[in-house]
């Protein structure tokens, strides 16, 4: 993919959030996207038409992360009110609330079957919640982290958490092992490559690090952007050819995966780019920012 194919053209601006947008995520097929922000709402958009579809309100404080099931039927969201809400997408009602985190919840994800929700909290724990039973208790608490867990990723058999203590811990359920990769720098956000072999970890020393999951080797470092104090998302493009990340100065950076050169950088927002999400198939990207907008980018 050459530079020309990178989604650099602003196609749509999604406006509606009142205040910082903290996360924007495509849904499973990339037809819709979800955003959440400091205005305590979760919003569902059609990024391709630029339309706002629905607003979900119930959180008592800012909503920090949102994720949708593969069948688009349910949402999970978490936020500063220490709660995790399971929503019905169509009715917009909260189906369940998971309480138990002692502090703010930073990230949340469904597993593959949407049966378990794993949340990462400021209370240094990962918690797994059962969506099928009605037990209010988490079915698993992982508290081996020594600082706030910022981000969580799930595979079919593993839970991966990135923490401010500088570790990326992989919990393999299948073999019952915890693999701890210490990066030495606070990890802000982790994201899996599409082939599942690598983890991209955004560290607070303004560096994205690419780790080989099987060996724990550091494959590449991506620098150039600013990421020193905020939780900024990063991700790989759907072809795993490039690395995308936001910057605190409102820029978006594209790196080449292999040689880590900055292929492109452009100003996308007026303020901190909190979140980037790449379309699962097309060359399309959404970015969210503190300036309360979500922008859709295309080639």
């Amino acid at each position: 993919m050459s530079e020309g194919e990178l989604p650099r053209r602003e196609a749509t601006v999604l406006k509606g959030h009142e205040g910082a947008v903290l996360a924007a995520r495509f849904n499973g097929d990339g037809n819709y996207c979800l955003s959440c922000g400091k205005d305590r709402t979760i919003r569902l958009w059609n990024p391709h038409r630029g339309t706002h579809i629905k607003t979900y309100k119930s959180h008592g404080r800012e909503v920090r992360d949102v994720h949708v099931t593969p069948d688009n039927s349910k949402l999970i969201s978490c936020g500063g009110d220490r709660q995790i809400f399971l929503w019905d997408v169509t009715t917009g009602k909260v189906i369940r609330k998971f309480r138990g985190h002692d502090s703010e919840v930073n990230a949340v994800k469904f597993n593959e079957y949407s049966s378990v929700v794993v949340s990462a909290g400021y209370d240094q724990s990962l918690r797994a919640w059962d969506c099928r039973s009605h037990s209010p208790e988490p079915i698993q608490i992982v508290d081996t982290f020594s600082d706030s867990v910022m981000s969580v990723c799930l595979t079919k058999t593993e839970m991966i958490g990135g923490s401010v203590d500088g570790t990326v811990r992989t919990f393999d359920i299948r073999i019952g092992r915890e693999i701890c990769d210490d990066l030495g720098q606070p990890v802000n956000c982790i994201s899996l490559s599409n082939d599942g072999n690598c983890i991209l970890a955004s560290c607070l020393d303004s560096t994205l690090r690419l780790l080989d999951r099987s060996t724990g080797e550091l494959l590449q470092e991506y620098k150039g952007h600013t990421c020193k104090s905020y939780k900024l998302d990063c991700c790989l493009t759907n072809s795993d050819a490039h690395v995308v990340g936001g910057s605190e100065d409102g820029y978006i950076y594209f790196w080449d995966l292999v040689d880590a050169s900055v292929l492109s950088r452009f100003r996308a927002h007026a303020a901190v780019v909190t979140s980037v999400s790449y379309h699962p198939k097309d060359s399309c990207m959404i970015t969210a920012s503190v300036d309360s907008t979500i922008r859709v980018w295309r080639t």
Binding site: I139, V142, F171, D181
Partner: peptide, 12 residues
């Protein structure tokens, strides 16, 4: 860095 460690972990 990055250094890797492995521990026993028991999933419920």
């Amino acid at each position: 860095y990055p250094k890797r460690q492995e521990f026993q972990w028991r999933p419920s």
